[in-house]
Computed example of a mutant assay.
Amino acid sequence: MTRPAPGGEPMALAAAHLRAAGLRVTVQRMAVLAAVSESAGHLDADALRERARRVTGALSLQATYNVLRALTEAGLVRCTQIPGHPARYEVEHRDNHHHFVCLRCAAIRDVECTVGAAPCMEPRLPAEYEVREAAVTFWGVCPDCRGARPDTSSM
């Protein structure tokens, strides 16, 4: 794949999003945000670093994590922590969705929240607690893996 021009549309959009979030605009931040935005979602830091390096050239994994933390804190990126897997990142749409994880291939798919508005679940907590989000993970076998071989996993 050819290296996109730094002034290209994805980079310009990333710069605009960074400014709107009150973040300083750097090539590394633009490149990582563009990589997240252009992906189908749910990529780990290493995969995003590889995509961002097409623009920045050298980019360490630590620098990538630093950028992802800043983007997450600014509300531009959502970090999803699935037990047993590296953190995955996607554009933050504030749409209150959940995730399905395939037990065989570890693919992650968004699942629309079918109950309603955030947090879409009512935990039994004292009134002093303010719940803003519920994170639900569905575990199973995706259609590709179901067709590939018989199910030998158990939970």
Rank of each mutant, 00 (worst) to 15 (best):
P86W: 04
G41C: 09
A35L: 08
Q62A: 14
V55Q: 12
M30C: 15
S60G: 13
A70G: 01
T72S: 13
A47V: 10
P83I: 05
L71W: 07
V91D: 00
G84E: 10
R53K: 11
H85L: 15
A45W: 08
R24S: 12
E38F: 00
R88Q: 11
S37H: 01
A40W: 03
T56G: 01
T72I: 06
N66E: 07
Q28T: 12
T26P: 09
S37L: 02
G22D: 08
E38L: 13
L71S: 06
A63L: 08
L43D: 08
V36M: 12
E90Y: 00
L43F: 14
A74T: 09
A35F: 07
T64D: 01
P86N: 01
S60V: 01
R49I: 01
R69K: 15
H42R: 13
M30P: 08
A20T: 09
V55T: 13
T72P: 01
L71P: 02
A16V: 02
E90S: 15
A21R: 04
L61W: 14
E38P: 00
Y89N: 02
H85A: 15
L71E: 08
G84S: 10
L76R: 06
A20V: 06
V32R: 04
Q81V: 13
R19M: 09
R24G: 01
L48G: 10
L23F: 11
G41E: 08
L23G: 05
E73M: 07
L43I: 05
T72K: 15
E73H: 10
L61R: 15
R54F: 00
A16N: 09
R51N: 13
A16F: 02
L33H: 09
A52D: 05
G75K: 03
S60Q: 06
C79Q: 15
M30S: 15
A47F: 04
L68N: 02
T56M: 07
S37G: 12
A87R: 15
G22K: 10
H85F: 11
Q28D: 11
